[in-house]
């Protein structure tokens, strides 16, 4: 079984977001880039499945230009077998459905049987693309998974169902699974693997390779348009309560009830 892992490059979660051009999104000048944290759980799970003899190959799939290659190398250094970058001038400006079409076409062309991805990306927080890939391929999906078991052609996945509850879901491959924190503890790359990853070839595929057309992907096909970027409104200055502990606790309860009116 071949596993396709969907990977996205995002700004590190400790990034202090700045906006230079409200029509263009956040300013990327000082951003440190990382693999989306949830995608790391997906990579780790794929590697463990291969080590357990349940998968034959771990293939990384990402959409982006040369700037994302280091993230593919980071994931190769964790132990993935191959990396594929999906890049074409016609892909630029794709919305989540467009990105999903690109990834679905690549997964299909590669004969992938299991797609693993993060539950959402730490930049747009959309949580859409992997599930859209499942729909486009007509596959099962289970989202927000914290435990996964594969036995032959079937899977069992533990999915969050709200308030700390979980559903245990069964189904047959091919399927898409999205990873939540808790699925596993991602490994660090070894020095040897980092050196090896530097030498590995990264495959690049475009529109024609994937059998896609301009009406399906890119800015012209995008149904979702983003603009008007801004920082969140500043919160008004708060008040530090004074006095001894008993007095401050009494005052806090009083202001929550009478001033803020929230209890």
């Amino acid at each position: 079984m071949k596993i396709g892992v969907l990977l996205k490059q995002v700004p590190s979660t400790d990034t202090q977001v700045k906006i230079a051009d409200p029509s263009a999104g956040i300013s990327t000048a000082d951003v440190k880039w990382t693999i989306n944290p949830y995608d790391e759980f997906a990579i780790e799970e794929a590697l463990r499945l291969k080590e357990a003899g349940k998968a034959t190959e771990v293939l990384l799939l990402t959409v982006g230009n040369k700037d994302v290659e280091q993230r593919l190398r980071d994931a190769l250094a964790m132990g993935a077998d191959r990396a594929m970058r999906l890049d074409d001038p016609g892909f630029v400006g794709s919305d989540p459905l467009g990105v999903a079409r690109i990834l679905a076409a690549a997964a299909k062309a590669e004969g992938v049987q299991l797609v693993l991805g993060g539950k959402q990306a730490a930049d747009d927080d959309n949580g859409q693309v992997p599930i859209m890939v499942a729909e486009l391929l007509g596959w099962a999906h289970v989202g927000v998974v914290t435990k996964l078991e594969i036995a032959g052609e079937t899977f069992k996945a533990w999915r969050a169902s709200g308030g700390g509850a979980q559903d245990v879901v069964e189904g047959a491959l091919p399927a898409v699974i999205t990873a939540d924190k808790g699925l596993n503890e991602p490994r660090y790359a070894s020095l040897k693997n980092i050196m090896m990853a530097k030498k590995k070839a990264i495959e690049v595929k475009g529109m024609a390779d994937l059998g896609l057309s301009a009406g399906q992907v890119g800015a012209a096909a995008a149904l979702v348009k983003e603009s008007g970027w801004s920082l969140p409104p500043q919160r008004p200055a708060g008040r530090i309560l004074q006095g001894d502990n008993a007095a401050r606790v009494k005052e806090l309860v009083a202001v929550l009830r009478d001033e803020a009116k929230v209890i």
Partner: peptide
């Protein structure tokens, strides 16, 4: 719509064209 991005460190306007 307006929606948070980067877990609420930024907001953007979203228009749907379908």
């Amino acid at each position: 719509a307006r929606r948070p991005q980067y877990a609420g460190k930024a907001f953007s306007t979203v228009q749907i064209q379908s």
